[in-house]
């Protein structure tokens, strides 16, 4: 059957979430058939043989919350993915669990067939694009990049707080290096911050932007600066929430409620801090403060106190709220 018509539907109904494509097909006898499209077709295509979008082979280094989330985002969008992780079984398990939640048994099997998990970094050398998502530590990342100097593709770091330009000192080809900053959960959040250094080539930026779009995400291009856009605005905002709380302006519940209802945020700042982790928050603030020397990036005393007391948020079962 030939595709003779196509419409992209932008209104959702109870059983079909927009946007999606509906095709009008015609057989040799002229009979029409309506089909919801499961991949990208153009007029004149034969139905059942969709055009292959050229999706590059991608690599992800690291399999923590972000690393596995990024791998899942790629797999959900039909990419072939190679993941580098120290513990192969654990990484595979984490990725599979996330896929199962969204796809169910059968489709997860299909997606997993496009995944390779290996503890051997050399296996990723044939990738067109690699996203590094290991621990937020300058030294660890430096050491990793030194092992990748012969890599010819586009190398991205998912760092949220380190200076991308400084990291670029340790890569093989500075023009092929940039930040590709995903947001948690990486398979759901629609934004990718693409961070360019002075040396990043426009081809590299275009490549990352195009891959982001293939993931159904919107890329924004950012010049390398502390916190990029989102964290630069978010972190002082969260800090102010802690200050307001510590000064007794209102209770944690009331502060969160005020922001949810007054600013239409899906989650209040103190609840969000518990989710991010107070330790992570303090470390990002300290990093931004060290880079800028600006007072606004100095973490609130209460935050540091909570970290020292082990009140880190959800992961320690106690933060601004109790999770026991």
């Amino acid at each position: 059957m030939k595709v003779i018509g196509k419409t992209t539907v932008n209104v959702s109904s109870l059983d079909h979430k927009a946007p999606y494509d509906v095709l009008l097909l015609q057989d040799d006898s002229g009979k029409l058939l309506v089909k919801k499209a499961d991949s990208n077709y153009e007029l004149g295509d034969s139905f059942g043989k969709p055009k292959q979008e050229n999706k590059p082979l991608v690599g992800v280094i690291g399999s923590g919350v972000m690393g596995s989330g990024i791998a899942v985002a790629f797999l959900l969008n039909g990419f072939s993915v190679k993941v580098n992780a120290r513990d192969e079984a654990k990484a595979l398990g984490a990725i599979k669990k996330k896929l199962l939640k969204q796809l169910g048994e059968e489709k997860t099997k299909q997606a997993i067939s496009k995944l390779v998990v290996s503890s051997d970094l050399k296996k990723l050398m044939d990738c067109e694009l690699i996203v590094e998502s290991i621990i937020e530590n300058q030294k660890e990342k430096q050491e990793l990049f030194k092992q990748l100097t012969s890599f010819k593709g586009v190398l991205c770091t998912n760092t949220s707080s380190l200076n991308v330009t400084k990291l670029s000192e340790f890569v093989g080809k500075k023009e092929n290096f940039a930040g590709m900053h995903f947001f948690n959960p990486a398979d759901k959040m629609a934004l990718v911050e693409v961070i360019k250094t002075k040396n990043t080539s426009s081809t590299t930026i275009e490549k990352i932007a195009s891959v982001s779009k293939m993931l159904g995400k919107t890329p924004i291009i950012v010049n390398d600066s502390p916190g990029f856009v989102v964290n630069r605005l978010l972190m002082p905002f969260l800090n102010e929430a802690i200050l307001a709380y510590s000064e007794g302006v209102a209770s944690a519940e009331e502060i969160d409620s005020a922001i949810k209802l007054g600013l239409n945020h899906p989650m209040g700042p103190l609840k969000l801090l518990d989710l991010i982790g107070l330790d992570v928050f303090v470390s990002i603030m300290n990093s931004m403060h060290a880079q800028t020397k600006q007072e606004k990036f100095k973490p609130a005393l209460l935050a540091e106190k909570m970290v020292s007391e082990g009140k880190l948020g959800i992961k320690s079962k106690q933060g601004f709220y109790s999770y026991k």
Binding site: G5, K6, T7, V9, V11, H16, V22, V34, K36
Partner: peptide, 17 residues
């Protein structure tokens, strides 16, 4: 309906034809 053909979509295909 099972193929996602709500009425705006049906008339969109008709318009295109």
């Amino acid at each position: 309906y099972k193929e996602g053909l709500v009425f705006p979509a049906a008339y969109a295909l008709i318009a295109q034809q």
